[in-house]
C-alpha cells in the first residue's frame, strides 16, 4: 500500500490496532498553560461552544502532519481556534490582534505599570 493510501484509509486519530513501539510509562506535570487549556476545553463544552466530540474532530481536521508534530495541548488550542473561526464566533484577525497584544504585554519594553487596560 502506498503512503498516501494509508493517510486516506486512516485519519490521524484512528490508530487502534496498528503496530507500535513498546509502552514507555512516561508522564509529566502539566505546564500552567496546558492546565488552563484543559480547563478551557471543559468550559467550552459546558457552554456548548465546542463539545468534546467537536474537539476530537477538530484535532483530526488538523491533518496528519500537524497532529504528528504538535504536542497534545498544542493540538487542542489550535483546533479550538479553527473551530471558533469556522463557527463564525471569532475571526483569524481577532485572534492575531489579540495574540499581538498579549505578546506585547510580555515584551521587555513594556513596563509592568503600563499594562493595557481597556
Amino acid at each position: 500500500m502506498t503512503e498516501t493510501e494509508n493517510l486516506v484509509r486512516r485519519l490521524p486519530n484512528d490508530i487502534g490496532g496498528l503496530p507500535a513501539d513498546p509502552i514507555r510509562r512516561v508522564d509529566h506535570e502539566l505546564e500552567p498553560w496546558e492546565k488552563r487549556c484543559h480547563a478551557l476545553a471543559d468550559v467550552l463544552d459546558f457552554h456548548k461552544l465546542i463539545s468534546t466530540e467537536e474537539k476530537r474532530c477538530g484535532v483530526e481536521a488538523l491533518g496528519a502532519e500537524l497532529v504528528g508534530s504538535l504536542t497534545y495541548y498544542e493540538r487542542w488550542i489550535v483546533a479550538f481556534a479553527n473551530i471558533l473561526f469556522r463557527k463564525g464566533i471569532l475571526t483569524p484577525e481577532d485572534l492575531a490582534r489579540k495574540m499581538e497584544q498579549v505578546e506585547t504585554r510580555w515584551s521587555p519594553e513594556s513596563a509592568p505599570e503600563s499594562t493595557p487596560q481597556g
Binding site: 498553560w33 495541548y73 488550542i77 489550535v78 485572534l95 495574540m99 505578546e103 510580555w106
Partner: peptide, 17 residues
Amino acid sequence: GGPGYYDIMETALRELL
C-alpha cells in the same frame, strides 16, 4: 522571555471569549 506561541494563543483565545 515570557510565554511560547501556544501559551500566547491560549491566553488570547480565553481573553477574547
